[in-house]
Design a binder for these strands. Structure first.
Lengths: 207, 207
DNA sequence: ACACATAGTAAACACTGTTTACAGGACAGG
DNA sequence: CCTGTCCTGTAAACAGTGTTTACTATGTGT
């Protein structure tokens, strides 16, 4: 059994070129325009060569998504860094960063949280656990500071907030409320997210 | 110009047979197993015949989705009928019905709110406007009854609640929190939805 | 220099949605 | 009756997809 110690640089480059091509094509025209032949052509290679570096298309797309999550975690950390620990602004900043990320990398985001295209992924397998620990910690800090009520389970609050952002994005990506709603202001994810923030803080019940 | 008055019954039947086949295949194996050739075979017809009744695959799937929405509206009306007007239970029942519908018709639901597979659809074009008017009316009634605070825009509350249910479903369909969260009880959409209901009612702020 | 594992290629395979040319039947009018 | 038109369904092809196979260089280790 012979084991090669030195990886030839040209190989590393092609593997990365394929990944870069896939990332670019995905961002440009979505997953439907991201065919193996197009990826191969852009990477300056034939389709078959891709399979020397990735098991199949799913594995390639998964790798692209993984890279997105890494950059997402960085964006998340940047967003909360500017806000004081324990403040609600810190939690709100995470939501804003989430929406900003989804809008900047729209096609990748569509793939990320798509029950058809992507298989159900374990959060623990994602880089940075999908940013969940950061969110959870901010919530615990806010509870300790008395910013939000500490009677609830922090995990429940985290899932509640996460599902809320995801829901706003999914709803507005799939449904057009034109002519259905008389809502002043633009009905984009950020607008709806900010406009409903008070409801989250104060609740639906009359005070 | 000759105009045919009587539609031959066999034609009507094939059109419906195609639709029924598509509906069944979609429910069984999702959109990826719902190929035109399979639909044709199950309907006892050749693939080309489908195009006499539907412009393309999107039109066929859209019709299936439309049928789903019709049954969804019925389920929605049934759910609220048992609850008193103006009560919060009436609003909660809608959320439960939403989740029940998503779980019973999982594959159809995945297609319905999928930004990649389905094109962005105008709510006004859907049968029953996607059930939105019903939700909105329940919220207005609850505001009048003093069940929920009436300082907010009912449309905002409606979108808030809708996005919340959709978010819970999307999040749990795409992410597996196994080993990440120490949450007693099963982490399914219904469980998470009910467990976080108090947060929606009372808000995150300490009382 | 020989052996061998690897990287990439060209071509095929099995599938997809869709279009085309064509055949059979049903109905209207002469 | 026959003729002509319209409609419905068929068979076959077209262009595209992801993937596999057989093969050829290439470069490395012994």
């Amino acid at each position: 059994m012979i084991v090669r110690e030195t990886e030839t640089p040209v190989t590393v480059r092609t593997g990365d070129r394929i990944l870069a091509a896939a990332r670019a094509l995905l961002a440009e025209g979505g997953v439907e325009r991201c065919s193996m032949r197009l990826v191969a052509t852009r990477a300056g290679v034939t389709p078959g060569a891709i399979y020397r570096h990735y098991r199949d298309k799913d594995a390639l797309v998964d790798r692209v998504v993984e890279l997105s999550f890494e950059r997402f975690e960085i964006a998340l950390l940047r967003a909360i860094a500017a806000q004081p620990v324990g403040s609600f602004a810190r939690i709100a900043a995470m939501g804003d960063a989430y929406i900003a990320f989804a809008e900047e990398h729209e096609e990748e985001f569509k793939v990320l949280f798509n029950p058809i295209v992507t298989a159900r992924k374990r959060l623990a397998d994602l880089p940075g656990h999908g940013g969940y620990p950061i969110l959870r910690q901010c919530i615990v800090e806010a509870m300790d500071a008395g910013t939000i009520r500490s009677t609830a389970d922090p995990d429940l609050v985290a899932l509640f907030l996460w599902s809320r952002v995801l829901g706003v994005l999914t709803l507005l990506m799939t449904c057009d409320f034109e002519g259905e709603i008389a809502f002043e202001g633009t009905l984009d994810p950020r607008g709806l997210f900010e406009a409903t923030r008070d409801l989250v803080v104060d609740g639906l019940a009359p005070r």
